[in-house]
Amino acid sequence: MESVTEILIRSRDRDESARDALFSRLYDELARVARSQLGRRDGTLETAGLINETYIRVVDQGRVGWEDRSHFFAYAARAMRHVLVDRARRRTAQKRGGGQRAVTFTERAGLSEDEPESILELDEALEALSRTDPRLTQVVELRFFGGLTEEDAAQVLGVSARTVRRDWFKAKALLHEALTRANDE
């Protein structure tokens, strides 16, 4: 199988097939890592941890530059989004199918109701947002699904951290608008 590093290098030249391959490979990797959490009881459940772990594991850093790294994180954040949305969708289906509400035991918080719907709603709102402002959508993907800091997201997008902060702020406002509109319909 072609290594992620190879794909990453190949996708430098706007090679669409390479980018698709990158996305689907990252989807598989992340889905696998996210599947279960044994050995990760040290509190790093965050998506950022999963993505970084994957990066460290599958990318030969000696062969890639910072631009490839940016690519990686941009695609990984998107892949993470899809992994989570798919998981949320399956879980919602389970909830409906089983006729009872799934209840998740989270270690520290105790019993709480599982609300995978909020991820699905967010995904739809993001879809709507991407039609008018793809960059804001990407900021949300990087910050929320990718768990990147302002600085890291700025590096991936090639803008200033300030711009990321402003976009993040605006994106939240627009998401709220989209979510409200969806609920009104």
């Binding site: 996210a34 599947r35 279960s36 959490q37 459940l45 998506t47 999963l50 989570l84 998981r87 949320a88 879980r91 998740t104 035991f105 989270t106 270690e107 709480s112 599982d114 609300e115 995978p116 719907e117 909020s118 991820i119 709603e121 967010l122 929320f144 994106a171 939240k172 406002a173 627009l174 998401l175 709220h176 608008e177 979510l179």
Partner: peptide, 19 residues
């Protein structure tokens, strides 16, 4: 919007915490 993201984040945590 931030509050909505917080709710979604909670859901993400649950999904990740629960195989």
């Amino acid at each position: 919007g931030g509050a909505a993201l917080d709710r979604a984040e909670q859901a993400v945590r649950q999904i990740l915490a629960h195989p």
